[in-house]
Amino acid sequence: MATSTTVAETGAITRFAGRFFQEGFRPRYEVQELLHQCFVVGYQSLPLVGITGFIMGMVLTLQSRPTMAQFGAESWIPTMVGLTIIREMGPIITALIFAGKIGSSIGAELGSMRVTEQIDAMEVSGTNPFKYLVATRVLATTLMLPVLTILSDAIGLFASFLAINLKGVTSLALFTNNVVSALTFGDVVPAVIKTFFFGFAVGIIGCYKGYYAEKGTEGVGQAANSAVVASSLVIFILDLLAVQTTGLLGLN
């Protein structure tokens, strides 16, 4: 029963995503609303994502130092931390934080709009609520999460640089060189591409949960909660798929 519900839900979300691709790119284009959503979803998430990235970079560096020192490989810390952050930690941590903040807020917002008939009101006001509400939000999350991830990576690497300077001295140029020396396009490009999928998953699941929220305030809470849970899970599944795909493409 639980399995069949999950499968049915997956099917419904897939159909919802299909509707997004069908309707989302036809006129009329809700450019203003899209930009506003980008602002809300992207810019206003930056403080939270930035703090997370900062702590991530600093903790990774400080935690790996004792072990690396045992092997006399302290000069490899920037390389290791850089690879870890750019390839995996940056995208996944940012996506999870993003799911927590944005997935829940989209679920709650659309859920409350559903139960207070605002979505119906939009429809009778000559507006396709799917385009106006769903398409803009999904596009915004899809486009903004990569940007947030890149900024989070940058902040995390800077935090790592600071953490190294807490117990030793390195110059920013040397640090950058160390990080870049081990990086290849195969590390950066797939990591950026997968964040688009993470962002899309957060947006589409949040919107689905909110758009079809049950009547009543309880439905709103449920929509917000299940949006976070489902999108976090999907992010991990997508991450696994991304690893496999890049492996198959020979980019690893």
Binding site: S112, M113, T116, Q118, D120, A121
Partner: peptide
């Protein structure tokens, strides 16, 4: 057509 038909929702449906 909907531009000529008004609808007053039970819960008002004002955009918060």
């Amino acid at each position: 057509l909907r531009a000529k038909v008004g609808f007053l929702f039970q819960s008002n449906a004002l955009y918060d």
